[in-house]
Simulated scan of single mutants.
Amino acid sequence: MREQVRFAVLGPVSAWRGAVEVDLGAPRQRAVLAVLLLAEGGRVPVDGLVDALWGDAPPASAVGSVRTYVHRLRRALGEGASLIRSVGDAYVVRALPEDLDLAAFRELTARAEAARRVGDLEQAAAHLRDALALWRGPALAGVRGEFAQAGREQLEALRLSALESLLAIRLDLGGHADAVPELAALVAGSPLDERFREMLMLALYRSGRQSAALQTYAEARTLLADELGVDPAPALQRLYERILRADPALLAVARSEEPNGGAPVEMT
Rank of each mutant, 00 (worst) to 15 (best):
E3K: 10
A8K: 00
V9N: 00
A15S: 02
W16A: 07
G18V: 01
A19F: 05
L24R: 01
G25P: 03
A26Y: 11
P27T: 07
R28G: 04
Q29K: 06
V32I: 03
G42W: 12
V44F: 10
G48S: 15
D51C: 12
P59D: 12
V66L: 09
Y69G: 11
Y69C: 06
V70A: 03
H71L: 08
R74H: 06
G78L: 13
R85W: 07
D89E: 10
V92D: 07
V92P: 09
E98H: 12
D99T: 02
F105S: 00
E107P: 02
A110C: 04
R111E: 11
A115C: 06
E122W: 13
R129K: 09
R129T: 08
A131M: 02
L132N: 02
L134F: 07
W135Q: 01
W135A: 06
A139R: 01
G142I: 03
G145L: 08
G145H: 00
Q149T: 10
A150H: 11
G151V: 01
E153Y: 06
E153F: 07
L155K: 02
L155I: 13
R159V: 00
S161T: 12
E164Y: 14
S165Y: 00
L166W: 02
L171C: 06
D172S: 10
G174W: 04
H176Y: 11
E182T: 12
D193Q: 14
L202P: 08
A203N: 07
Y205F: 14
S207E: 11
A212P: 03
A212N: 06
Q215T: 10
T216G: 09
A218K: 08
E219S: 06
T222G: 14
L223V: 05
D231V: 07
D231R: 14
P232W: 05
A235L: 14
R238N: 11
Y240N: 13
Y240T: 05
E257P: 12
P259C: 09
V265P: 03
